Amino acid sequence: MPEPLATEITVRARYAETDAMGVVHHASYIVWLEEGRTELFRALGLPYADLEAAGYFVLLTDVQARYLSPARYDDRVIVRAEVAELRSRQIVFAYTLRMAESGTPLLSARSEHVLVARATGRPARWPPEVLERLRSVSGPK
């Protein structure tokens, strides 16, 4: 079984992403997860824009996050995303976020998504060529 492909991006906590105490607001992490999985799809040669142009949406159906330590304004955070599970209509991503300088773990998370046909709004199967590419890098089934 090949090692799952993971991408890592670095984000810097912006002032607008923090609360009155300068701590990154919990909702900001969810946005960073989206950035991570967007880059993962891009690294696979499957940019979201191309999937949408082909008539599909990848809809979020569940997200779970475990907050381990706070990030603060201007901190650099590494967002790691990988494909954890893959089914004919569903994909699950796993994430870890950590401080860029110290490596301190900030968050572990997973998100589940379903592929939907734009024309019908109904769940759809991954196109065979997309499914094959995703299978080549996905983690344990």
Rank of each mutant, 00 (worst) to 15 (best):
D62R: 15
E3N: 08
R125E: 14
S108F: 00
A6D: 06
E35W: 10
D19N: 08
V63F: 06
S108C: 07
A43C: 00
D75C: 07
V116E: 09
P128Q: 12
A43S: 15
E112R: 15
A81H: 04
V130W: 15
A84C: 05
G36C: 06
D75M: 08
V58K: 04
E132G: 02
V114G: 14
P123G: 09
Q64Y: 12
A119M: 01
L5G: 00
A81T: 14
V130C: 07
E17F: 10
R76Q: 13
I91G: 06
R122A: 14
K141F: 08
R89H: 08
E101R: 14
A84Y: 00
M1T: 10
T96L: 14
L115M: 13
A13I: 15
W126Q: 10
Q90G: 11
G36K: 05
A20R: 15
A43W: 02
E34K: 08
L134P: 06
L68M: 09
A16P: 00
V11P: 03
E8N: 09
V24C: 10
V31N: 07
R80E: 12
Y73W: 13
R98V: 09
R72N: 09
A20P: 00
P140Y: 03
A53Q: 15
V23F: 09
V58R: 02
G121Y: 07
A81C: 15
P128M: 09
P127K: 06
A94G: 08
E129W: 02
I91S: 05
P70T: 09
V83R: 04
S111A: 14
L107Y: 03
A65Y: 05
A16H: 11
F93N: 07
R125C: 08
A16S: 13
S102I: 02
A49N: 05
F41D: 02
R135F: 02
E112G: 15
R98K: 12
A94V: 02
E17D: 09
I30S: 07
E17I: 06
H113Q: 15
E85S: 13
A100N: 13
V23Y: 01
G45Y: 12
L51C: 08
P2T: 12
A49E: 15
M21S: 04
I78S: 01
A53Y: 03
A49V: 12
E8D: 13
L33V: 00
R110H: 14
P140D: 13
V31K: 04
I30H: 06
E3S: 11
L46G: 13
E82K: 13
T96W: 03
L86V: 11
D62N: 11
Y56R: 13
L86W: 07
Y29P: 05
A20E: 12
V77W: 01
M1K: 10
E129C: 03
S28L: 03
S28G: 11
V79G: 00
R125W: 01
G22H: 05
L33H: 04
M21R: 06
L59N: 07
V58T: 05
M99K: 14
Y29M: 04
R66H: 14
V130A: 07
A16V: 07
P128V: 03
R76E: 14
V77P: 05
T61Q: 08
S138M: 03
A124P: 05
I30V: 12
L134Y: 02
D62H: 14
H26W: 10
E8Y: 02
R98P: 03
Q64I: 03
